[in-house]
Amino acid sequence: MNGDEQLLRGRVYGRDHDDPDPGPLPHRTYAALMGGPLDGLLLDITDRQPEEAGDGVALATELSRWPGGRALYDPDPAEPHRPGPGVTCRFHYTGDAP
Results as ranks from 00 to 15, higher is better:
L42R: 08
D4P: 08
Q6Y: 06
A32Y: 03
D4R: 08
A60S: 10
E79C: 09
E79V: 11
A53K: 05
R9L: 14
H81E: 11
Y30C: 02
R15E: 02
Q49Y: 10
V57H: 07
E5N: 09
R70Y: 14
D19H: 12
D18Y: 13
G56D: 04
A31R: 10
Q49N: 08
P83S: 06
R15C: 01
D74R: 14
G54A: 10
G54C: 00
F91V: 04
D18P: 12
E52S: 10
D44I: 14
R11V: 04
L63W: 07
V57I: 06
E62T: 08
L59N: 02
R28I: 05
T29S: 13
M1K: 03
R90W: 03
R11Y: 09
D18A: 13
D18Q: 14
D19N: 12
V87R: 12
D74G: 00
G40P: 00
G10R: 06
G23L: 09
I45A: 02
A60E: 07
D76C: 01
L7P: 08
G68W: 11
N2I: 11
H27P: 02
A78S: 15
H27D: 15
T88D: 05
M1V: 08
D39T: 05
A71K: 07
F91M: 15
T88F: 10
T94W: 10
D44E: 13
L38Y: 08
N2E: 06
L38R: 08
P24C: 04
Y30M: 04
Q6R: 15
G35Y: 06
A31S: 12
L72Q: 03
L38I: 06
H27L: 14
E51Y: 15
Y73K: 01
A58G: 06
G56E: 00
L43W: 07
G3K: 13
E51S: 04
Y30L: 12
G35T: 01
Y13M: 02
P50D: 07
R90V: 14
T88W: 10
P67H: 01
P80T: 12
P80Q: 00
A60K: 00
T94I: 15
G36H: 14
T94E: 12
R70V: 05
E51G: 11
E5V: 08
D4H: 04
A58P: 03
R48Q: 03
R65Y: 07
R82P: 09
L33D: 07
M1R: 04
G69D: 08
P67I: 04
G69T: 01
A60T: 08
P75K: 04
L7R: 03
D74T: 14
P24N: 05
T61V: 04
L43A: 03
T94G: 00
E52N: 04
P67F: 01
G86H: 09
D47Q: 13
D44G: 01
P67R: 07
R15L: 02
L42H: 13
R48G: 05
P67S: 05
P67G: 06
D21N: 15
L8K: 09
G84F: 13
D96R: 11
G86M: 11
S64F: 00
P80V: 05
P22W: 05
E52V: 02
Y13D: 01
